[in-house]
Design a protein around this nucleic acid. Structure first.
Lengths: 231, 231
DNA sequence: CCCCTTATTTGCGCCAGCGCAAAGAGGAAT
DNA sequence: ATTCCTCTTTGCGCTGGCGCAAATAAGGGG
């Protein structure tokens, strides 16, 4: 059952699209459901489709030859992913997309997007804006990883996630749903270190740590750690 | 003295431009010379112009609040830089561009590029390709920084630089012109560690290390370190 | 309600890499 | 040649963070 094309306007790249364009795109889309832990695509696969997540949650990651993983980005609803292939000819995905819950996405042929962009400059512009924001975020994260201590990197990851997908509870706390392993992959450290840091913060009353869950009790306290000038 | 517009075809984004477009662009360009160590622009400045380096060498870097630096990219002749501002409205540069030698660049108003892109899809396409390659490179470097040991990261930096700007000498060695500090900023470590690693490699006969200079004697040996599967 | 699986915590030992400090080396300019 | 400046090397001590191992906790399914 195809979704209402108007929903596609929630996708940043399509925010300025005409109603007709949205219909065209949705007509070219097929729905794909993927279970928790399974994959939309793997790094190195031919980038034949780009995706728009319509329900669930996924992550984009790179895997090293030795099997270690690095989390590049978390994808939530109405975000586009796998779109780099729409740009180059015969591109392959530069990362792997794995569902973090049971998820559904729309898949559209990259070639179709490429075709649309030929005659719709707004699409290129929006896609470039999105790419620009990725570049900036990666540059920033790269700098953090190169220059900042683990504790602060973890604090920043929590804040980034808060902005992107944090759920505010009634008492002003913020709830995040991630495993220690997820957080480790996002902050460039190990699950042991994440666990130790969260335990310490819990002792200080900043957060409450649970299974696959972190409840930020004092957001400003986490901000303080992330920004702290001393060191 | 304005340069020959045809030279602009060496810029990847302009490779498919018409002769007339190249002329238009060069007519809108002003030349700017910057001495060794001085700056084209700073992180946070309004991104009014984009640049094309026509002689010399520069680096793009991010500076932390505590003054530490991270090198994002080295710019050599006919590369475009500072173009992210052409995409967003009222953007600021996300990085600082510093000359590594006496350098000259063409500066063109970002707005002018934006205007051209409205009617020339090939420009958007090429710019997106460039952005895609940045994203991929940053993702890769991020993964390396997160998962790989210093020695291997340094090896990879040398190989990247070899591909980008290495000078082959008559006997098959490759010469690179960088300070230990530069290499440290590029591999996310300190100049001390770079120095120690290079000294060790010199003992093994892989390289010759000189002042602001590294001569790679056995490129395949460096590749072996960069690729080595054992750990 | 119990069992099994998966996530988390924490003690412990270890070492890669940091960063100070001081000495050495290479170039450029006079 | 001499001087000066900058870049580089290396000894030394230190520590942040890794990662094993084992215990503990939290769900989920039957």
């Amino acid at each position: 059952m195809p979704i209402d094309p108007m929903n596609l306007r929630k996708v940043s790249v399509f925010q300025n699209a005409t109603e007709n364009d949205l219909k065209l795109i949705s007509q070219h889309a097929i729905e794909r459901s993927v279970e928790d832990g399974e994959f939309f695509f793997f790094q190195g696969d031919p980038a034949e489709y780009f995706y728009v997540l319509i329900s669930g949650r996924a992550k984009l990651m790179q895997t090293t030859t030795t099997g270690q993983q690095v989390n590049l980005r978390t994808i939530s609803e109405w975000q586009m992913f796998g779109a780099l292939g729409a740009v180059r000819e015969n591109a392959t995905y530069p990362a792997t997309a794995q569902a973090m819950e049971n998820s559904t996405a729309l898949a559209v042929k990259s070639d179709y997007l490429k075709e649309l962009m030929q005659t719709r400059p707004y699409l290129s512009v929006e896609l470039m804006k999105l790419m620009t924001s990725y570049i900036q975020e990666m540059q920033e994260r790269y700098r953090e990883l190169a220059t900042e201590k683990v504790e602060r990197r973890i604090a920043r990851v929590l804040l980034r996630l808060t902005a992107q997908m944090g759920v505010k509870t009634t008492d002003g706390s913020i709830e995040l749903t991630f495993t220690r392993q997820d957080l480790a992959e996002m902050s460039g450290t190990t699950l042991y270190t994440v666990s130790r840091v969260l335990s310490e913060w819990e002792r200080q009353g900043l957060v409450e740590a649970g299974r696959e869950r972190v409840l930020i009790r004092k957001p400003h306290g986490v901000v303080a750690i992330a920004e702290e000038l001393n060191q």
